[in-house]
Amino acid sequence: MIEIRIHGRGGQGNVVAAYLLAQAAFHQGMYCQAFPNFGAERRGAPVVAFVRLDDKPIRRRSQVREPAFLIVQDQALLNVPGVTSGLNPSGAILVNSTQDESWLNEHLGKTTVALPANAMAKEHLGRPVPNTALLSAFLSLTGLFPIDALKEALADRFKGELLERNARLVDVAAERVNAGIWNEAVHATST
């Protein structure tokens, strides 16, 4: 089982990100579970969502306390207490950030990849919604399954031009990171 925790802010598509990732895994024939942990339901408030992926049915429904990976949709959240807590020592963080990656690695003491997902989303979607780019980069980094599954999951939700723009963003974001560098982390953190 791989457990992923996604941090973001209300309005950033945090729950949608969790659902898309689970749905993409489902299209790959995996078992999946995605659920939000809502705080107060308002824009801008920190929100958390959880994803579990496995090759067998998933029984537990507890919150993900020791994730293998963190996807953080807003770099400012890295300074919020608890955001990185419980991260598997062999795990890694993907953050929507324009900050210097080596500085982030040092500052956080964790393997961290920074993706300027807001700018990428602005360019391709016209809006700074970072989730599609982050998910694509995450799949590319981990090699969990091909990005085509993410496109399939996007097609469950969007159509027409919006779908095409998202699909292009998937391609661009996957290219932007070093494919497969988190392969080992996946093996080390699988339970």
Binding site: Y19, A22, Q23, F26, Y31, C32, Q33, A34, F35, F38
Partner: peptide, 10 residues
Amino acid sequence: GFVLTHTLEP
């Protein structure tokens, strides 16, 4: 509520 209603699964 939430634990099931808001959980996506097969």
